[in-house]
Amino acid sequence: MKSFINALVSVILAVTFFFGFWVILDHDYDWAAIAPYSGNLFSGWLVTVGISLAALALSVVVAAVLTVAQLSSHRVPRVLSRAYVEIVRGTPLLTQILIGYYLIADAIGWDSRFGVGLVILSCFSGAYLSEIFRGGIESISKSQWLSARAIGLSEGQTYRFVVIPQAIRRVLPASAGQFANLIKDSSLLFVISVHEFTMQAREANANSFATFEAYLPLVMGYFILTFPISLLSRHLEKRFSYEH
């Protein structure tokens, strides 16, 4: 029975792959049609890289603030940050982009699409990242706290010298994964016309009618960004799993 299922799965996978490759390979490519837009595609790719890096930096800041608030001994920051994280994680990014741009940014009179997109993406990713950070800090065992207390470290010193250095190692793999998500999620910013990679590919497609020639580079462009990160994340995971 088990070998039958294995065989069936193998066949289905093989057929799917074959069909996929056949569609891609059999297509009658007309690269000349897309050539005039290659500069735009490349600049879109650069915008995606840029906005992802900037959002990474900003989302670490957002996540740090949220994490401090969640670990606070006061109720108010705890409840507020919890509510924020739940709302952000419980609603689609697309909705947040639309509301963030057309309602909130509009109300305060800010119309830099890149700027607003960057902030929304950072607030979104920061919520996920803060859950990773909190999990990392809470994973440090009670015996570490007890040891730190026993040698006379204050609470702040315990965080600084004992808890955070260990937590950082533990959250690195998941944080790298979150960065890969960030790169992919930035593609949704086309709805507010940020001139990132997906937006440029859509425009190139609309103008040239060369769908394959516009979207194939799009897929490759994202993949060469996310694949190394995924490898890095797996490498980090292995490396730190030996330590414990």
């Binding site: 065992s141 015996s143 570490q144 007890l146 040891s147 730190a148 026993a150 040698i151 006379g152 470290l153 010193q157 010298f161 004992v162 250095p165 260990q166 190692r169 330590e243 414990h244």
Partner: peptide, 26 residues
Amino acid sequence: FLFQAFNLFPHLSALDNIILPLTEVH
């Protein structure tokens, strides 16, 4: 203070485990 087990900080070398309280606490 010394407990039954798990006294040391795993991210620090033996030497740094001994040095940390001397510099930061004392």
